[in-house]
Write a protein that binds this DNA or RNA. Structure first.
Lengths: 206, 206
DNA sequence: TTACATATGTTAGGGTCTCTAACTTTGACA
DNA sequence: TGTCAAAGTTAGAGACCCTAACATATGTAA
């Protein structure tokens, strides 16, 4: 083998036997395959072909198929978190614009990477990978913080928790429905930006 | 074979060779297996074992595995629709109580049958089974009708569409988050019934 | 520098799964 | 009653997950 190789995104070392960073290459392959074909059609064998290694190689880096998928979920969550911070940055603290930006960010992610978005909120049997829960709660605490600012509350009070949860529920549901054009259509000619502003007002200003 | 058989829910005719109603038995088996193990771990072979037939038998009734799953989705949607009508019946038309009842119904379904709830909103590649889209839109038109009554609108106007979609988004997202106790917990000590009433008011009474 | 332990590849293969082909049994109807 | 289509069966191809046993590269310590 190794005469031809898909050198997408991850470099190999010269040897030809040892890969260099197979783990990262497999995560990248898994991620792209899931986004292309859906997690239902993802196979470890496909990821191996894309990374140019034998079908047994992944098991030196991952316990099993599920753990490979978990690694992609973690990667996805970390990227999302960073994007969220980037989208938040330009807007003044404590304004509804920031809340709206969070909603837009969430929806954009869902529409751009629907396979990964679904996966992130799918049901998993095994233990979640190290760092997943932490990343999730850190990200959510950003949202709670923003809500606290808008409400003028000192910390993460019960009211803040409640309102943040309401917003999350709404935006999560909206993103989910928007991923399916048929469902989206039931809303008529929706102006999503206006909808987000509207919801922000309705939930945070009483 | 056929000396012992799991006679759960579906009767067999006496013959032992022909099943009687294998299609229905397979749908029932598929449904219970998906709810027990999740759709990821569902196998046609398992359903066959549960129905007491060979692993090739389903292909006389279904094109492939996906079509079996679709049949379960349709069954699930029809049951949900009927439950919705039942839950609506006792309450006076045009009142917010009916909207709240719809929300409670949705959440109850998601928590009672999370595997099927997820499945129903999962992404499918193939053509949806005959009747699925129709059942979905019929069900949703119930919701729109209720919203129209509360808003005092004559028909399904743009405003009705918008508000119904907002409510659906919220309740869908809420149901999704509630299926995961860790996520639910972020809301603090939420009173879900109160939340539903609150949202109904915020979205429908401006 | 060299020897060795360890990490990271490989091939081979068992067990399971989906689905098809070819055959068999049954029930319905002329 | 005889025939045909519907609905079962067995057998098997091809794919996949994962493990076991083996091979090769790398880094460290003598």
């Amino acid at each position: 083998m190794t005469e031809f190789m898909n050198d997408t995104s991850v470099e190999r070392k010269k040897t030809g036997y040892h890969h260099g960073d197979l783990r990262a290459a497999l995560v990248a392959a898994t991620r792209s395959l899931i986004e292309e074909n859906g997690v239902d059609h993802f196979s470890v064998a496909d990821a191996c072909r894309r990374a140019g290694v034998s079908t047994a190689a992944p098991y030196k880096h991952f316990k099993n198929k599920e753990e490979m998928v978990h690694a992609v979920v973690l990667d996805c969550m970390e990227r999302h978190r960073q994007e969220m911070l980037d989208d938040l940055a330009p807007h003044p603290r404590g304004s509804l614009v920031r809340i709206k930006a969070l909603g837009q960010n969430y929806i954009r992610f869902a529409l751009r990477e629907p396979g990964l978005f679904r996966l992130r909120f799918a049901h998993f049997d095994g233990e979640p990978l190290e760092g997943i829960e932490e990343c999730g709660s850190e990200t959510y605490s950003i949202v709670q913080q923003e809500v606290a600012f808008v409400l003028g509350e000192a910390g993460i009070t019960d009211k803040v928790k409640e309102r943040a949860f309401m917003l999350w529920s709404f935006v999560h549901g909206l993103s989910f429905l928007m991923m399916n054009p048929d469902l989206m259509e039931t809303g008529g000619n929706l102006d999503v930006d206006a909808l987000l502003s509207d919801i922000g007002r309705r939930v945070l200003l009483d």
